[in-house]
Design a protein around this nucleic acid. Sequence first.
DNA 1: TCATTTAAGTGTAAAATATACACTTTGATG
DNA 2: CATCAAAGTGTATATTTTACACTTAAATGA
Lengths: 233, 233
Amino acid sequence: MKQNTKYQYEFPRPALATDCVIFGFDGGELKLLLLEREKEPFKNKWALPGGFVFEDETTEIAAKRILTEKAGVKNMFIEQLYTFSEVDRDPRERIISVAYFALVNKHQYTLMAGRDTVTAEWFELSSLPKLAFDHGKIVKTAIQRLKGKVSYQPIGFELLDEKFTLTQLQSLYEAILETPIDKRNFRKKILGMGFLKALNEKEKNVARKAARYYSFDKKTYKELTQKGFHFEL
Amino acid sequence: MKQNTKYQYEFPRPALATDCVIFGFDGGELKLLLLEREKEPFKNKWALPGGFVFEDETTEIAAKRILTEKAGVKNMFIEQLYTFSEVDRDPRERIISVAYFALVNKHQYTLMAGRDTVTAEWFELSSLPKLAFDHGKIVKTAIQRLKGKVSYQPIGFELLDEKFTLTQLQSLYEAILETPIDKRNFRKKILGMGFLKALNEKEKNVARKAARYYSFDKKTYKELTQKGFHFEL
DNA sequence: TCATTTAAGTGTAAAATATACACTTTGATG
DNA sequence: CATCAAAGTGTATATTTTACACTTAAATGA
């Protein structure tokens, strides 16, 4: 097993890895990016993008690197999720995984399912395949976290385009929270918070009244936050 | 450096440790349990109880073991906080730490500051000494987490005795949230939730009207939760 | 035993926030 | 120019949150 003896320690050490739960949204249901494994164990099973943490990287930097390398995702929102350390979570040897969750704009990159000739695919949350390792558990944790967080932190915007309509924003919240929201009340509330900038631009080529575009004004949001404002949906 | 060659790996591996932020409360300000380091690095500096994770332990089990071994704390509430992986967070070598935070009842155990002849001491949050390693950062993270969590999860009870008065409970929330709370509104709200059991027992030997004791009824709380009830202070 | 001290315990009115709900407008299409 | 489809908009009611002060009870000591 241990062919190479370069690194020697007095006590056994688990390997350190990171796995990423990547959420995306394009209007319908919330989606998750999975890769098909090419090697054993769990060959041909779906799994989260993941990999080992290098000697000179924090886990967060490793997670970002892996996201770019394996899934072609760049400049995404990323946040540490949880560290999974069950002794037998990997059948090969002990590997602990510091999991992250990422929110990406599905339009901002097309599945460059080439890179490592890995097959990458978006799955709807309601129809996920059975996942390799303990990745099912990781995903469950990530969904919980996202649901909890989205109501008191404006992270939803990370999933949308720079410009979005209020209906798109509402659909996103409905998808994440899995509950219908009243249109008028939603608009009243979210606009009342004061960090959405109405743009002088509307949808084009829609066979109905065109909706106005808005953008999330980060600067204003920061200022509000510093004045004690607290986002809450 | 590497005297012992028992464990050999193809790639370098950081050591895996865990550190615990232990909160306690006895009526005034929120307190934190620290140990004085006996060895270099940071000899004689204050630090969080911590240690390495064994081969057959999850990080949570390691955290509990260390809490018991080093701080004499048993059966405490514990929750994973965050994983700190800065490459140079330990001057000796790379050690990543899965940090936990614990809530303990200060009365339930007296500082058995013997065990390892380690000096353990409670510090008020407002007058913490400078800490070893990145423990200051860990503590800051833990305080944030506690503040955030206490409002939407009934974890405060872990810091109190089995029986407590409503005034004690209120003081605790005031200490954690660092804000005064209206007595009548607090009582109305917390009693209205329905999971506090009024006991047929009052304070004794107090030179004023004796306060009634209450206890947190876990069973009722669970039932309420399952019916969709959502704690929120 | 009675006056004093101290915190416990209690209710209501006003303000703010959340909810429920339906019609008009606009742009594209045929 | 009629039709279709979703955008956009306001109000009344219910609920929740807030602000606020006096009476009660237990011990202490004069």
